[in-house]
């Protein structure tokens, strides 16, 4: 009985051996995870994050990229722990979308 992350030995295609450098966005997600787990904060642990990733379900796990899964996991944990609410997250996303839309219009103008 396999959870979606437990894939050792499953058939899969050839390895894309080209190294793709981590993007700035990925590095920021990585940094947030490091900080939330450090000794100063201890808000989430490595194993809590792994469990949250393992619990995403097969389709979500397969669809999301590596750091997108991390983003999903850290979001779930912050909701679970009552540190953020979904309302806050939705409002913030709307705010950022609007802000970035404006920035784009400015660039095009």
């Amino acid at each position: 009985m396999r959870a979606p992350h437990d894939i050792g030995g499953l058939p899969a295609g050839p390895v894309d051996t080209e190294p793709h450098a981590a993007t700035f966005w990925e590095k920021r997600i990585d940094a947030i995870n490091v900080l939330l787990g450090d000794d100063k904060r201890r808000i989430l642990s490595r194993d809590e994050r792994r469990l949250a990733i393992e619990s995403l379900g097969e389709e979500v796990y397969q669809t999301l990229g590596y750091y997108e899964r991390w983003t999903a996991a850290v979001t779930r944990l912050l909701l679970q722990k009552g540190i953020l609410s979904q309302d806050e997250i939705d409002a913030k996303i709307a705010e950022i979308r609007a802000r970035m839309g404006e920035a784009e219009e400015k660039t095009e103008a």
């Binding site: 009985m1 396999r2 437990d6 050792g8 393992e54």
Partner: peptide, 13 residues
Amino acid sequence: DSPPGHIRTPVYI
């Protein structure tokens, strides 16, 4: 065994 929790022993082994 196949416990439902967070297990670091991969299924294949």
